[in-house]
Amino acid sequence: MPPRLPLATQRLVVVTGKGGVGKTTVTAALARALADAGRRVVAVEVGRGGLGPLLGAPALGAEPVRIDRRLAAAAIEPEEALRDFVERVLRFRLLARRLLESTSFQVLAAAAPGLAEFLVLHRVLGWIDARRMGRPAHDVVVVDAPASGHSLPLLAAPRTLGGLARLGPVADLLARFERLLADPAATLVCVVTTAEDLAVRETIELYRELGTLGLTVAPPIVNALPPRRLAGTDAAALDHLPPAIALHPYVAAARFQHERRRHAEAQVAALRRALGVAPVRLPFLFAPSDTTEAVAALAGALGAAAGLAA
């Protein structure tokens, strides 16, 4: 049976999903799993977030920080990427700085469709192409993309901008990126969700939109699935308890966990029906979920789904 998360040859993994579903934690865990399986990984977040601490690194910067032998991490600030890009194009630093400081240029940059996204992709492509001693410096770049509403523009940028830039170095770069994104052996998009109504609905919608971009999208990763605490007949037994103990805190807690689990299972089933594929399931963590230990626990589960040997 082929692995559910095909990650054996991928050079680029883009992780997206609705805000607050644990996208960054899953990104960290995927990066960890890939590194544990022997691949040399750069984990990247767009904007400032929590990726650094999750990987046990200090604050991340524009250049990858080495975390261990196989894992490095970086953060891309679109504004900084813009500065970098303009400085490189203009070559006159003073002029570039002057231009970047003007409100108007910022307005212009914000208005240019896909420019910020293009600059992010530009950086990512740089890491994918980087070579050291005759071979690629990194095997795979894992990107924690902005939340779903904002990650589509990122993935659609080559097309959006491609319509505007037909010639020149930018057009070449865009064409190259479009090839990379379209290659199922090179790029995988992962969508993270929780087993909640709205998150599931948004995920189904996101799959529909991603489908139109011709990308390879992995089965959804359902994060923070509540545990199953009751056995088959327990719930019925609880309904027939004498009134004196029906409101006992243990019973209330059990009913509550039971309902949460049942609801989550229904959501996972709905997701499976809508997408025609079994989601990858990650457990809810009772230990704080924003730690390197939590990332290690989830990395194990993701590594198994990806068929990665540690």
């Binding site: 545990p227 605490r229 009751l230 056995a231 327990d234 037994a237 805190p249 243990y250 019973v251 807690a253 059990a254 509550f256 966990q257 039971h258 009772f286």
Partner: peptide, 12 residues
């Protein structure tokens, strides 16, 4: 059942 209830209570 008491053991399983206790786990839920511990969860919460």
């Amino acid at each position: 059942l008491a053991t399983r209830l206790a786990r839920s209570f511990a969860d919460l």
